[in-house]
Design a protein around this nucleic acid. Structure first.
Lengths: 179, 179, 179, 179
DNA sequence: TATGAATGAGCCTTCATTCAT
DNA sequence: CATGAATGAAGGCTCATTCAT
């Protein structure tokens, strides 16, 4: 799957030949079929793994009850870490069509945004946050990281990214809003 | 190209058969090859058109010198309008690999983020904005819209989206940051 | 037809596109169909013309009753002249499959060898020639010229070719046979 | 390749469908592509093999130093035998355009005529032959056989052909030249 | 279980042919 | 009669998939 991720990350689905995957993985072509029913199955398994991993890293660390900004930071940090640790998986994930594909994937995608949305709503309730559209803002968190990791500005580090993102969301960049 | 956009928007490249495109466009299969050298060429032409259109809509309206937030609003509104007017082109665009593909596409992609980055920098200089990382924030604008349009929350409208986005970026959602 | 000959001479049938023929002939693609029913028809017309021309040049000049070697010389000279005057037609002709193709072509091909065979037989009867297999020797004449014109040795001229060919057939190259 | 030879022998390149070749060879269509990169490659491989075989059969048996006429007889016999043993390969070969095609083929074609030319020149030196144009006569040998095998007169046998050909070349058919 | 040679369904692409102008 | 834009039948080629070893 590492090999497959590497290839699918940088090439369209149809550009990746199972023969290349097999070679990259240093196994026979037939061996792939021992573990995956088809090329599609392999591709979906990849995305499923990616989402699973991301969910693990980003959401599992969140402990409800702690400060809302701490929770958001945990999620953001998790996603960034994941994106930097598994850039290939991350890129594969990003290209996945939102179509019906696989219910498991839909569910995980949903879980991820829901988790963030929940934190935001919790923040609204606790008064530490004022967000009239947490369902939009939650999309924002994921998209942001996605964009930065796909087209990384020069000299980007996990820390800078995390810091900047949280600051923007928290306080905005308007001058009159800070003092 | 309309027909092609419609198909490529909802299906992976390899799932789209030129025969279907031809049928959808109500022309003969061979006719496609009168105008496009290959399936790839058609696909790239689509993306190129999309970026061109988007650039037109989003960047051309910006008049430097006006208030920074007005400029940002113009861009944001343009991108959102484009995404809603041409959802198919928008979806095709989004899936384009950042790879070498086509220099023209690379250039347009670059132009778009640069335009936003420039506005932000201008804002920094004028003091209306305080953004230590405009190169990151510019990515943010695009990613945000992209994410929202790909996985649209229920009841989303262009106005709400525009408003929410600008508010977040301007003032953040932190309670202590506003009064 | 000149244009077609030029193209068919140096390229396999399938390598020649009617579009190229039209362009080379400086007419529209459709115009070809005003004069030829199909690509095959054009091709066959070409071969037919070639054989007709060759027959004209090579056989028509032969006047039975004259000296046999004069007659042979006339034929040989005619074929060589034709080959050098219309190298393209000549090359097209050579590649024609001996298959059923076109009865008219078969007939002309036959006429050509028959003409030579007849001269040889006449020579046998008159005693100026001793050839136990004129049906083979007649093939020889054509093949010879064909070979030389397809893969011409450097510095070949019509005269040298004609002279050499007749000498070989008449007297052979064995030393003991001449004095 | 046997199957391919059979088909290419009696049909123009474009009339032969790879599907037919596969069927004739009793293998899958895809299997052809395991061994040949393209239809062209298959065709050229065929011609290459034909020339190789012919070279083997015709030239390898020649032992320099033996009587010149024996050497020529060996070559002639070799070519005739080859033509009769592999009529398909022979016919394919004949149609090959003298164009650039494949350097290996060019070389073999050259080798063949050179070999005969060398024998003739050796004959000139030894005095057993008087041939002012061995470079032309060598073409003759090949063309002759080619012609006879392509349009075989009825009742042709290898022996008759060999005998007749050598006799013509050696002594000619002029009556005054023999006694 | 692992393999890779063989396979053929499927698709892109070509180009002879048509026909409205 | 001349044209060339449009067409779709045909076939070369790919590659996911199978299966005998």
């Amino acid at each position: 799957m590492d090999a497959a991720a590497r290839l699918f990350a940088n090439h369209e689905f149809h550009e990746v030949r199972l023969e290349d995957v097999a070679e990259a993985a240093k196994v026979g072509k037939g061996t792939l079929y021992v573990y995956f029913a088809s090329k599609d199955a392999l591709y979906l398994a990849l995305i499923r793994e990616a989402f699973g991993e991301l969910l693990q890293v980003a959401v599992s660390g969140v402990s409800h009850g702690r400060d809302v900004w701490d929770q958001l930071r945990t999620v953001v940090r998790g996603v960034i870490r994941f994106g930097m640790a598994y850039p290939d998986l991350f890129r594969v994930m990003r290209r996945a069509l939102p179509g019906p594909e696989d219910p498991a994937i839909q569910e995980m995608r949903c879980k991820l945004t829901s988790a963030i949305e929940e934190i935001l709503k919790e923040g609204n309730r606790s008064g530490r946050i004022h967000d009239p559209h947490p369902e939009i803002t939650s999309q924002f968190f994921l998209s942001f990281i996605r964009g930065v990791l796909m087209y990384p500005p020069a000299g980007m580090t996990a820390e800078v990214l995390e810091e900047h993102m949280l600051r923007v969301v928290r306080s905005g960049i308007g001058k009159e809003a800070r003092r």
